[in-house]
Amino acid sequence: MSEAVNDPIIEINGMHKWFGRFHVLKDINLDVKQAERIVVCGPSGSGKSTLIRCINRLEEHQRGRIVVDGIELTNDLKNIDAIRREVGMVFQHFNLFPHLTVIENLTLGPIWVRRTPRKEAEESAMKYLERVKIPEQAEKFPGQLSGGQQQRVAIARSLCMNPKVMLFDEPTSALDPEMIKEVLDVMIELAETAMTMIVITHEMGFAKAVANRVIFMDEGEIIEQNEPREFFNNPQYDRTKLFLSQILAQ
């Protein structure tokens, strides 16, 4: 696996978030270096999803600073648009656009946001479809694909925007077991190309294979973070130990 480069591409300082009165993220401090692969895990309700959704402004933080690729995340719409262009996101439920074909799903962003001519956008989209190993599905509609294929299309859709960071929000949780591997393979191949990735997942095999850092969150705080071997073999805090025992008990 490639080594991470030193300048942080994402800096989060003292970030707090509330949903109404509920304090969902407490004093988050996180630096993500380029080409770093981070796996975030934790019990449900710990705020992991909320954290990565704050990075591309799908959620708004109330206190603290988030800086992505040198651009600070504020209410300034220009900053938000610029950041969203550099950050790609893959959702648990794919969120493909059902009324557009696969190739149209992929070229929508490049055509309307990066103003790419259609032919160029389609050629680039086909390249990404080949990368996720389903080029033959280009003219089909999302409703005609299996779950694993849809998620791979979703990954290709984000990649078409040439992002610097890819966020994954439990990408395999909605898939039938036999389709999880095909998606994880795509993500591993992506990691090998030095893409910065933040992945929320329960697939600990993926973490062990690919991650530089594993972060454990609980009740809105980052409890523990370490490189995978240390994390799994030497958890420092009781809560981490409890979580690991539950998730690895097979």
Partner: peptide, 11 residues
């Protein structure tokens, strides 16, 4: 880590 109290929201 793990001991941060729930604070009231700003504003």
């Amino acid at each position: 880590p793990g001991c941060h109290p729930d604070l009231p929201p700003p504003g």
